[in-house]
């Protein structure tokens, strides 16, 4: 579900610069005609993801630029929805930290069977590949008091009856980067591009 927040702002004109300076002398009739200025209109309803309730999102700074994110909730909708929300929060955290992209650190264990992601064999570069954002899960289901862990790399199927989930935590470790992103790294995600894709799709779990 997407919610929108009415914002009465007029964004700064985009595209071509409004002022034009000239090298030698004034250019008769010259005017910037590049990208048409096309600001959001006053009253435009800009998409915005609502704030999460306390305790839903936890961010821990680890070594250097590494962060550990956890999204927790009780009401399970779909695995994809919750993982997308975590990815969106990872992108937002990256931008808040004045970085531009992040790498996803896979939580693999001995015996995992999921193949490791590789660079595209045809040489394509990517701004992100959502298929490779694979966070770890733990949950309580069916009234059981103990947490059950599930790894996307284990080869085991996700819980057969997710409707029985009463508590869940989804977690990911990411490392933030500045500058030009490595489009050949299958675990690299350009934060703004990820946020753009997901902003209209996600909401915090309850």
């Amino acid at each position: 579900m997407n919610r929108n927040l009415g914002i009465g702002l007029t964004l700064a004109a985009l595209g071509a610069a409004a002022s034009v300076s000239f090298a030698v002398d004034a250019q008769p009739g010259a005017a910037p005609t590049s990208a048409p200025a096309n600001p959001a209109q006053a009253g435009d309803v800009l998409p915005m993801v609502p704030l999460a309730k306390p305790g839903v999102v936890t961010v821990q700074k680890r070594d250097g630029d590494r962060f550990h994110l956890v999204v927790a909730g009780h009401k399970f909708n779909t695995r994809a929805e919750i993982e997308k929300y975590l990815a969106y929060r990872a992108a937002e955290l990256t931008l808040e930290q004045k970085a531009s992209w992040f790498t996803f650190i896979e939580a693999r264990s001995k015996g995992d069977t999921a193949p490791e992601p590789r660079s595209d064999p045809t040489g394509r570069r990517y701004s992100f590949r959502m298929d490779y954002f694979r966070p770890a899960w733990r949950y309580k289901a069916g009234g059981a008091p103990a947490w059950v862990s599930w790894s996307p790399f284990s080869g085991a199927a996700f819980i057969a009856d997710p409707k029985g989930i009463t508590d869940f935590e989804v977690s990911a470790d990411i490392v933030l980067h500045k500058g030009a992103m490595d489009g050949a790294d299958p675990l690299a995600f350009e934060a703004q591009a990820v946020a753009d894709l997901l902003i209209n799709q996600v909401s915090p779990p309850e």
Binding site: V20, S21, A23, V24, D25, Q27, P28, G29, A31, T33
Partner: peptide
């Protein structure tokens, strides 16, 4: 036409290679 697609720049020429200044637009 000295219109929106016109620019005048200073330049130096050495052995037939014309190198202009760098301009804001």
């Amino acid at each position: 036409l000295k219109n929106a697609q016109y620019t005048k720049l200073r330049a130096k020429i050495i052995n037939g290679v014309v190198e202009t200044e760098q301009v804001e637009h």
